[in-house]
Amino acid sequence: MEQLISTSSPHIHSGASSRRIMLDVIIALLPASVAAVVIFGMKALAVLAVCVVSAVAAEALFNVLVHKPQTVGDCSAIVTGLLLGLNLSTNVPLWQCAVGSVFAIIVVKCLFGGLGHNFANPAIAGRVFMLLAFSAVAGGAMPAGAELATGATPLELLPAGVSDQLPSLWEMFIGLCGGAVGETCALALLLGYVYLVVRKVIKWYVPAIFIGTVFVCCFIASGDVVLALYEILAGGLFLGAIFMATDYVTTPINAHGRMLFAVGCGLITFIIRWFCRYPEGVSFSILIMNILSPYLEKWTARKPLGG
């Protein structure tokens, strides 16, 4: 008889793993990635590839240099790289993509202790860093085959109100407009949303509340349903709400905290877009709410049974 193992209960496990969750997120990002390449051409593929490769390489190298156990196997660096890439436009030089990716992984994630210890979403922080360091990240690029290679994105045009210059709502929904490669096709992003909800990786309400808050605020402010619809389809709202406002590490751990987080994101996005006429509402709103996250968690803690 071999030695019997002695361990503390429980002796069975749900089978869930962090790696599986990350793989699910990657799978959910595939429709948007494919849409990016279809809409923006091979340049989009180059952006995504450079971001993913440099993110993974940066994490692997960091672990080697500081003698930490190798963690690239958890696939979280792929998620960060892919998300950052989807947040950039084809106008961004590839070397800048690489720098942004390395910043996201090294400065935002690894220096804080790696997966689970960062206070801000690495992809968002990477994008904001690139925005400040290299100015344009999302604007400018038009779908492959468009008459003009560059132009204003719908988000930049919206402050002037609904006009002929804007693409139709349908074109906006399927992604035929300017912007970051992964943010324009709401349809593809929604497919990913459904997948993540079905796989129970994310809660349905976080993106719904985020997008809903922006919609309601825009509708109240303008009284125009069409404009409000344009607002939610423009820019990175779907991408941010579905994939970044649902990041576990940088959002509250409890349901009510997450709901409040989503409301806050929606409000800040609206304020930045509406009053500042500034097209970076989603990134900054999530970043600001990331910082507030521990407080939201504290304020919304559940009252235990018998406590």
């Binding site: 193992i5 361990t7 962090s18 576990y248 590490v249 409890n254 997450r258 235990p304």
Partner: peptide, 23 residues
């Protein structure tokens, strides 16, 4: 077989599934 623990990713499943509502 025992599984090696990895870093907490703050997913909230423990909080969601605690019948008492603890964290």
């Amino acid at each position: 077989a025992q599984m090696e623990p990895t870093a907490c990713i703050h997913c909230g499943r423990c909080v969601e599934n605690c019948p008492i509502g603890l964290n």
